[in-house]
Amino acid sequence: MVSELIDRFPLGAAVTVAELEDDPHPALARLRAREPVSWLPALDGWLVTSHTLAVRVMRDAAAFTVDDPRFSTARLLGPSMLSLDGRAHTRHREPFARPFRPAQTRERFTAFVEAEVDRLVTALAPAGRAELRGDLAGPLAVAVVAEALGLEGVDAATIRSWYGAFVEAVSALTAGRTPPARADEAYRRLRASVEEVLAVPGSSSLLAAAAGQGEGLGTAEVVADAAVLMFGGIDTTEGMIVNVLLHLLSHPAELDLVRRDPALLPGAIEESLRLEPSASVVDRYATRDVEIGGAPVRAGDLVRVSLAGANRDPAVFPRPDRFDPRRANAAEHLAFAHGPHFCFGAHLARLETRTAVAAVLARLPGLRPDPARPAAARGLVFRKPGHLHVRWEVP
């Protein structure tokens, strides 16, 4: 069967993990044009690169589920909102999602995000140079998640080390490698911190609320969901901020356009999300035999949706490789996924990104990349530059 699939999908058979980690877009374009659902031996599964078919897979949880013991975060953390469907998914998701609706997000987090951004940019401004992933995007995302979860007494460096271990482990599992041992230690320390929060009588934290509302979640379930929020609230938001800045700094004409008309910044953010989603793939498992895009998917097969591939589908986005802050339909991207597992933190991530990028452009005059230290996004699952060194003028 596998040899037949290799013969039938030769473009997919030629794709390597290294290629997908480094610069996947040329390979994704070839697949999308000729094999929009293709068998990739490198991933031991199917890869969907068409926008229409990606939406179909993510919308149909009955045919394409996350509830499978092979799912990477389930293997690492146990069942969570990210690895369950149906009623169990709702039970995990709803207590956490409720505070992140648009009005609640604005009311609870706007002042906090603005204050954090002001503090971080004020500290950076006199130096004339910085590494914006480590000095701005990462600390901001960590501070917001710590505030949201109520993890008092846990310093930012510790939280960053936890989620870094989880991200590394998920990426290793996705690539078929053994996850690092430090992920187990990060889980143990996160659990101990969550248990401290849950032990406080009358705690108003999000974690305590999740444990106490409705049917209530057990400690292990709350820990797993807290770790999931670290993926969504820290790593992908950090990547989102850095990717927007990298896109703007790499396109001087578009950067000048946004500087002259700040009303274009939200469009630039959506366009950056489209071009380089910080979470580039999501996994599903077929619950039954099904044909999709001409591919004979069998029950139990891994069906991996390439958000990065779908977001550059020329059938939806003309001139898809171009960074255009004025693109009218940029928000049709799938960077926050789709269907039951759409990211409920999207409003908060946009708030953080918009606030951080606006402050950097307004308060760091002559902002430009450091030519001695070029940056590029990379990663199989989570895509962002490893660093973003910049310079600016100091009065």
Rank of each mutant, 00 (worst) to 15 (best):
D7A: 15
E185G: 13
S278E: 07
D321L: 11
R160H: 12
A226Y: 06
A169H: 05
H387I: 05
E254T: 07
H387A: 14
R378M: 12
V57K: 02
H25Y: 14
V121G: 00
E291D: 14
R284M: 07
L31M: 05
S193M: 06
V48S: 12
A143E: 02
S161A: 14
F112D: 04
V281K: 13
V242R: 02
A279K: 03
G239P: 02
A61H: 14
E35N: 10
T178Q: 09
A330G: 06
A123W: 01
V57Q: 02
E271G: 09
D321V: 11
G202R: 08
F71R: 10
E35Q: 11
L76E: 04
S306T: 09
P180W: 01
E196G: 12
A123Y: 04
Y285F: 15
A377V: 09
P385I: 10
R274K: 06
R182M: 08
L361Q: 01
F9S: 04
G216V: 11
P266D: 05
V360M: 02
F231A: 13
L173S: 09
I159H: 00
P99H: 07
A148G: 12
V154Y: 01
P252Q: 05
M240G: 10
V303P: 12
F344I: 08
L190M: 13
T105R: 00
P179D: 04
E195T: 15
G233D: 01
A328P: 04
R70G: 05
P24L: 11
A372C: 08
L140S: 02
D85P: 11
L217M: 06
V390P: 07
R75C: 09
E221W: 07
L149H: 07
L190G: 10
V297D: 03
W39H: 14
G339D: 09
D313N: 12
L348Y: 02
R106W: 01
A157N: 13
A18R: 15
T73W: 11
A148P: 10
D289E: 11
A54F: 04
L265N: 01
P252H: 03
G134D: 12
T174D: 13
P374H: 10
T52E: 15
A183M: 04
F109R: 01
E271L: 09
V2C: 11
P296I: 07
G239T: 03
L28F: 13
A208D: 09
P320M: 11
Y187T: 14
A172T: 09
D135L: 02
R363F: 05
G386W: 05
P340R: 06
V197F: 06
V316Q: 11
P180K: 04
A74N: 13
A299N: 05
D324Y: 08
